[in-house]
Amino acid sequence: MPDLSLCPCGLGDPYPDCCGRFHDGSDVPATAEALMRSRYSAFAVRDAAYLLRSWHPRTRPRRLEFDPEQRWLRLEILDTADGGLFDSQGTVEFRAHHRSGGRRGRLHERSRFARHEGRWVYVDGEIRQDGT
């Protein structure tokens, strides 16, 4: 389990005041980017329940399993389009750095988000090769 004095999403705030409040259900992300950051943090702290709750029901898997060796290290937001307070859809392109089995890696994805029942949810994503 990572040190949660600061939120894994990279904004520099304490975890309970940042993504922790989304994970515990006391607040909801107001933008697609905030949801993206909270989902990254949920992977870092292995909160499968939050990940499933924040996934669009049309594309949500039945369950999630985490790689016990994988540790999420850092999130970079590369681009956002729409996904604001008055939007119904948005995209966030990100690069998530991780370590697994002693090797470093990264996931580069352009994720699609939509409002469902008044809340932002993850729909799906396109994995990208760096530089594309």
Results as ranks from 00 to 15, higher is better:
Leu64Thr: 00
Gly102Arg: 10
Gly25Val: 11
Gln89Thr: 15
Cys7Ser: 10
Arg106Tyr: 08
Thr132Gly: 11
Ala42Cys: 05
Leu75Lys: 05
Arg60Gly: 01
Arg63Thr: 02
Ala44Met: 05
Ala96Glu: 03
Leu6Gln: 15
Ser5Asp: 14
Gly105Tyr: 08
Asp47Ser: 03
Gly10Phe: 11
Asp17Cys: 10
Ala32Phe: 11
Ala81Leu: 13
Pro8Ser: 07
Met1Cys: 08
Val45Phe: 05
Arg119Ser: 12
Arg104Asn: 13
Ile127Asp: 01
Gly20Asp: 08
Asp17Leu: 13
Phe86His: 13
Cys7Trp: 13
Arg71Ser: 08
Gln70Thr: 14
Gly102Phe: 07
Met36Cys: 14
Ser100Cys: 13
Ala44Val: 08
Arg119Asp: 13
Arg128Glu: 12
Leu4Glu: 12
Ser5Pro: 02
Asp124Val: 02
Gly102Leu: 12
Gly10Tyr: 13
Asp27Ala: 15
Pro29His: 12
Gly12Asn: 10
Arg63Phe: 06
Asp124Thr: 07
Ala96Cys: 06
Gly131Glu: 03
Arg74Gly: 03
Asp79Phe: 01
Glu126Gln: 13
Glu76Met: 04
Ala34Pro: 08
Pro8Thr: 09
Gly101Tyr: 10
Ser26Gln: 14
Leu4Gly: 06
Gly101His: 08
His108Lys: 12
Leu52Phe: 09
Trp72Met: 09
Asp82Phe: 10
Thr132Tyr: 06
Arg53Cys: 02
Asp47Met: 01
Pro8Ile: 08
Asp87Gln: 07
Glu109Gly: 07
Ala42His: 00
Leu51Gly: 01
Ala44Lys: 02
Trp55Thr: 12
Asp13Gln: 15
Arg99Glu: 12
Pro8Lys: 10
Gly102Lys: 11
Thr132Trp: 03
Ala96Trp: 08
Leu51Glu: 00
Gly90Cys: 06
Leu4Gln: 15
Glu109Ala: 06
Met36Ile: 04
Gly102Ser: 07
Gly25Ile: 11
Pro14Asp: 13
Asp82Met: 12
Asp82Leu: 13
Arg74Tyr: 01
Tyr50Asp: 01
Arg106Trp: 07
Glu76Val: 06
Glu65Cys: 00
Leu107Asp: 07
Leu6Arg: 15
His116Gln: 08
Thr31Pro: 10
Glu69Val: 02
Gly83Trp: 01
Phe113Ala: 07
Arg115Met: 01
His97Thr: 11
Trp120Asn: 03
Leu73Gln: 14
His97Trp: 14
Gly12Met: 07
Arg110Met: 12
Glu65Tyr: 00
Gln129Leu: 11
Leu4Trp: 09
Val28Glu: 15
Thr59Phe: 07
Thr80Pro: 02
Pro14Phe: 05
Asp87Ser: 13
Tyr50His: 11
Asp124Phe: 10
Leu4Met: 14
Val121Asn: 02
Pro16Ala: 09
Arg46His: 05
Ile77His: 03
Arg119Trp: 02
Ala44Ile: 04
